[in-house]
């Protein structure tokens, strides 16, 4: 359950520069205990650098970070086991076996190894070397390692990169399951469908800054109109009247078909008007705006040479 009075991560004014390039610029973030928080942005937006600073892997140039109330750089020892992490571009030694990896990373907070193997469908791979695992099994092992010590907060960076669609769905289900365990998840991704499906709240990054934040539906409503109806208007209907219906934001006629944008409840009002008019067009098409449609203009081009 999300507890809005209990922030587990608080970031104020986080700034990181490489030479003259500012890759993270005055970032403020608050993540509440128990939520799945998405950090969304194009490649090069500064997401990975931000979460690396949050985990104490990089020293920031300015700003304050509190992770479970502690400074991740100077109080790393106190955070061991309380924070789980799946890093981008981070492998394991090729010949390290699954069971050995779990034993190597287990602290006294760890769940029993057999239980972890079973939870993540790796029981049959206990003695398999890392290099001999399939891509999906490697990702499952990374998630298993990230969650091994029953952390309070877990960072998952581009978890589904390189996975086929079926494997992505499996990983999504695993992440959703974390919410039920009460684990806070920070999900770093450039896949907008992933963020839309999984995240309670999202911060959108572009060029090192947070450019918008909110729930997926808030972002969609803020950045555009969430619903669109397209149909061939019956001759009996007055198109200007459609524009006066509740929730309708705009009406346009394109190629003989009318396109109506508006809020989600607009669909009901237009539908009712069509029914009242006595003719429901056979080609009526309703679609909900996806997060991707809404955010694409916001994300812009990645910073040239920006470090991830």
């Amino acid at each position: 359950m999300t507890n809005h009075s209990d922030p587990i991560i608080e970031v104020r004014g986080l700034t990181k520069r490489y030479g003259a390039t500012t890759v993270v610029d005055q970032v403020d973030l608050t993540v509440h205990r128990g939520e799945i928080f998405g950090l969304l942005g194009a490649n090069g937006a500064g997401k990975t650098t931000t979460v690396e600073c949050l985990q104490g892997l990089r020293r920031s140039d300015a700003g304050t970070i509190r992770l479970c109330g502690l400074d991740p750089l100077t109080e790393a020892a106190k955070l061991a086991g309380r924070v789980g992490s799946q890093l981008q571009d981070s492998a394991l030694p090729d010949r390290l076996r699954v069971g050995e990896a779990l034993r190597l990373f287990a602290t006294e907070r760890a769940a029993p190894i057999d239980e972890v193997l079973d939870d993540w469908g790796l029981t049959g791979q206990r003695r398999t070397a890392f290099a001999n695992l399939s891509g999906g099994q490697q990702q499952r092992l990374f998630v298993a390692l990230a969650l091994l010590n029953r952390p309070e907060v877990v960072f998952l960076d581009e978890l589904t990169q390189g996975l086929d669609p079926a494997a992505r769905r499996v990983v999504w289900e695993l992440i959703s399951a974390l919410r039920n365990r009460g684990t806070t998840v920070v999900l770093v991704t450039h896949f907008m469908d992933e963020a839309e499906v999984l995240c309670d709240r999202i911060a959108v990054m572009a060029n090192g800054r947070i450019v918008d934040r909110g729930t997926p539906s808030e972002l969609i409503e803020r950045q555009g109109h969430p619903s669109r109806m397209v149909f061939t208007p019956p001759p009996t209907i007055a198109i200007p009247d459609l524009g006066r219906l509740p929730g309708v934001a705009s009406v346009a006629v394109i190629g003989g078909r009318v396109e109506i944008d508006g809020s989600r409840d607009m669909v009901a009002h237009v539908g009712a008007a069509l029914v009242a008019n006595g003719t429901v067009p056979a080609d009526i098409d309703v679609r909900q705006l996806q997060l991707e449609d809404a955010l694409l203009p916001l994300l812009g081009a990645p910073v040239a040479g920006g470090a991830q």
């Binding site: 985990q55 104490g56 892997l57 790393a76 020892a77 955070l79 061991a80 086991g81 924070v83 992490s85 890093l87 571009d89 981070s90 492998a91 394991l92 030694p93 990373f105 602290t107 390692l145 960072f155």
Partner: peptide, 17 residues
Amino acid sequence: AYRERGVLRRFRTAGLK
């Protein structure tokens, strides 16, 4: 090899000094 493949970062996030 461990630094190149990110194994060292993984050790660090696992709380190893």
